[in-house]
């Protein structure tokens, strides 16, 4: 234990001295339709020119974990290399009938529901492979949902640094004060991933968070 701590301490010093840095495995977690993929796409598009995944108004569009490695961000003279891990929305219940409301056929809805349940299981498994997480919450929705609390509780228990994002601030119903009061222990940044609003604040916080790893 002591030996591990000593080697870890010197490893960190030598790593800083010779400029070597570990790739940040950044997970995007949150409930369905909060804008995780939209934000991951925005970052990918900004720094690699390509998007990561498709987005849709129908919940559970992302049903499998998708990632992009070696995304390098250069911001205010600082560099950060990341592996972006976009995860399916975590839900406690999935009803195929909810997809029918979006005009989907019964068979397609049932298939989507089946894939979405597997997506939730996979998203939880991937918590073991991230070293920092951006929790994306729809700022127009009630933030006191058990899913949000469960996700953040798990990250705290695993000692994983968390950045809470209130997305969709471009919408009239957005309520950042409610979101901030729900998570007073965390820095909460309001953004619109779709329109790129407040991305500078997001990148500032991301660099600050990367120092905690």
């Amino acid at each position: 234990m002591v030996f591990k701590k000593i080697t870890g301490f010197f490893g960190k010093i030598f790593s800083n001295m010779f400029g070597g840095h570990k790739e940040l495995s950044l997970g995007f977690y949150g409930p369905p339709n909060a804008g995780k993929t939209t934000l991951a796409n925005k970052i990918c598009k900004d720094w690699t020119g390509e998007e990561l995944g498709s987005v849709s108004k129908v919940p559970h569009e992302t049903r499998s974990v998708q990632f992009r490695e070696k995304v390098e961000i250069e911001y205010n003279g600082k560099k950060l290399q990341m592996k972006l891990i976009d995860t399916p929305g975590i839900a406690t219940k999935i009803d195929y009938e909810d997809f029918l409301k979006f005009g989907m056929k019964k068979k397609d809805s049932q298939k989507r529901a089946k894939e979405a349940t597997q997506g939730v299981i996979d998203a939880i498994k991937w918590l073991d492979d991230v070293n920092a997480v951006v929790v994306v919450i729809d700022s127009t929705q009630n933030p006191y949902s058990q899913v949000n609390i469960t996700i953040i509780g798990n990250l705290v228990a695993r000692n994983i640094p968390v950045l809470v994002i209130g997305n969709k601030v471009d919408l009239k119903k957005a309520d950042m004060k409610r979101l901030e009061s729900a998570f007073p222990e965390y820095e909460v940044i309001g953004i619109s991933a779709k329109f790129g609003k407040n991305m500078d604040k997001f990148y500032d916080s991301l660099f600050r968070m990367s120092k905690k790893i």
């Binding site: 975590i90 999935i94 089946k114 597997q118 939730v120 299981i121 939880i124």
Partner: peptide
């Protein structure tokens, strides 16, 4: 959540 999702 994982256990229940596997049963849906």
């Amino acid at each position: 959540i994982q256990s229940t999702m596997a049963l849906v």
